[in-house]
């Protein structure tokens, strides 16, 4: 079962299976290392509940839940 990244809680991790959506945002996610096979750890959620912070390919990235929605992950 795939879970979209916006549903993750701090500390949860998994491997990206698919990135949905299209155009510039999708390409941006690829360029920053969120490609199928990438290992992602959800670090935290901002104080107001959005955006979120993840670790991917050894660095920290912040993205909004609306963008995280298109990242589908096999949870570990």
């Amino acid at each position: 079962m795939l879970t979209s990244l916006d549903k993750f809680n701090p500390g949860e991790k998994g491997t990206v299976q698919k990135v949905t959506g299209e155009g510039a945002v999708r390409r941006r996610l690829f360029d920053l290392g969120i490609t199928p096979g990438a290992f992602i750890i959800h670090r935290k959620t901002a104080p107001f509940g959005d955006p979120i912070e993840i670790t991917v390919r050894g660095y920290q990235l912040s993205l909004r839940k609306s963008e995280a929605q298109s990242v589908l992950i096999e949870k570990e």
Binding site: V25, Q60, L61, R64, E67
Partner: peptide, 9 residues
């Protein structure tokens, strides 16, 4: 605009 931002060390 998307908000996909690196959080540098």
């Amino acid at each position: 605009a998307p908000f996909i931002m690196e959080l540098p060390q």
